[in-house]
C-alpha cells in the first residue's frame, strides 16, 4: 500500500534532484503507474523505489519512461484524420510554408500519419513536422520510423477509414517483422525533447496536435499548457486534442472556435 504522502515525497525528490515536475500530473493515473513500476522492477517496498530514484541517476530514465504513458497508434480515430484531411489541410495549403507541432508525440505513430496526409495533399515538401516529447528514448523511435509489422493490418484499415485510397504498404518497407517508413516522410520530421510542464514556446505553428497528453495533467497544468499552445499558434492556426479532451472551461476557450464534432479548434483571435 502506497500512501499519498509517499508519492509527494518521491515527486519532491524528482523535482529537487532532477528538475522533473510531476506534481501537477493526474494523481490517480500517476499513482497507478508508480505502483505498476514497483511491481515490474520488483521493489520489495516503496521506500526502495524511492532510494533507487534518489541514488541512481541512470534509473531516472527508466522511471520517467515507465511512469509516463507511451501508448499510441497510427490513424487512431479515423474520423479525426478524415477531418484533418478535408477541413484543415486545404487551409494549410494556402500557406507558402507549413509548420506543425506534435507535442508529446511519444513513439511518433501520429507524426507519420500526419506526414502521409501531407504527402497525399502534395504539401509534404513545404512542411516541417516538429515532434517533441520529454522522453529521449521514444524520440529515437520517431527518428527511425520503424514500427511492428504485425500492426500494419490494423493501421491500414484505420488509414482507409480516414479516407486513404492508396495502398498503405507503399509507405513502408517490410523486413524482419518490422515496417520501416519511407525516408521521404521521416526527413520532414524534426525531433527534440520538450517538457510541456517546464519548457516554453519555441516557434510559431500553423497546427498543433496534442492528443491524449492533457488527460495526464490536472486542470491547472492543462490550463498552463493550453496557454503555451495559444502563444505558439499563428493567427487562424489550428489546435487538435484527443477525443475526450476539451477547451471548455479553460482560460483560452474564448480565443478558439471548434470546427466540427472532431476535437479540432481554430484560433480566432
Amino acid at each position: 500500500m502506497i500512501e499519498e504522502e509517499d508519492i509527494d515525497l518521491l515527486l519532491n525528490d524528482l523535482f529537487d534532484l532532477y528538475g522533473y515536475d510531476f506534481t501537477r500530473y493526474s494523481r490517480a493515473s500517476l499513482k497507478r503507474r508508480i505502483i505498476r513500476l514497483c511491481s515490474l522492477d520488483k521493489f520489495p517496498s516503496f521506500a526502495e523505489l524511492r532510494y533507487r530514484v534518489r541514488s541512481d541517476p541512470s534509473y531516472l530514465k527508466r522511471f520517467v519512461e515507465e511512469v509516463t504513458v507511451n501508448v499510441t497508434e497510427m490513424f487512431r480515430d479515423p474520423g479525426f484524420y478524415k477531418s484533418l484531411r478535408e477541413d484543415v489541410l486545404p487551409v494549410l495549403g494556402t500557406k507558402p510554408f507549413i509548420r506543425i507541432w506534435h507535442a508529446g508525440c511519444s513513439t511518433g505513430e501520429e507524426v507519420y500519419s500526419m506526414a502521409i496526409l501531407l504527402k497525399e495533399a502534395n504539401l509534404l515538401r513545404r512542411s516541417l513536422l516538429y515532434a517533441t516529447d520529454l522522453n529521449p528514448s521514444v524520440l529515437e523511435k520517431v527518428r527511425k520510423g520503424i514500427f511492428p509489422l504485425a500492426l500494419m493490418k490494423q493501421y491500414s484499415e484505420s488509414y482507409m477509414n480516414a479516407g486513404g485510397t492508396r495502398d498503405f504498404s507503399s509507405y513502408y518497407t517490410a523486413q524482419y517483422g518490422q515496417a520501416k517508413f519511407d525516408n521521404e516522410l521521416s526527413e520532414k520530421i524534426i525531433i527534440s525533447t520538450h517538457n510541456l510542464v517546464s519548457d516554453s514556446s519555441f516557434n510559431e505553428f500553423d497546427l498543433i496536435l496534442c492528443r491524449n497528453v492533457l488527460i495526464y495533467f490536472d486542470k491547472e497544468l492543462q490550463d498552463r499548457v493550453l496557454k503555451l499552445f495559444d502563444a505558439s499558434l499563428g493567427t487562424l492556426g489550428h489546435l487538435a486534442l484527443g477525443t475526450k479532451e476539451t477547451l471548455k472551461f479553460s482560460a483560452v476557450q474564448n480565443k478558439f472556435k471548434q470546427l466540427n464534432r472532431e476535437k479540432i479548434w481554430k484560433k480566432i483571435i
Partner: peptide, 21 residues
C-alpha cells in the same frame, strides 16, 4: 466509461482518463 480509455477517480471527485496498456 468512454471506449478505449481507462476511467479513474481523483480525490477531488473528478474523473481522469488514461490511455495506458
Amino acid at each position: 466509461a468512454p471506449a478505449d480509455y481507462h476511467l479513474l477517480i481523483e480525490h477531488d471527485h473528478t474523473f481522469s482518463l488514461d490511455y495506458s496498456e
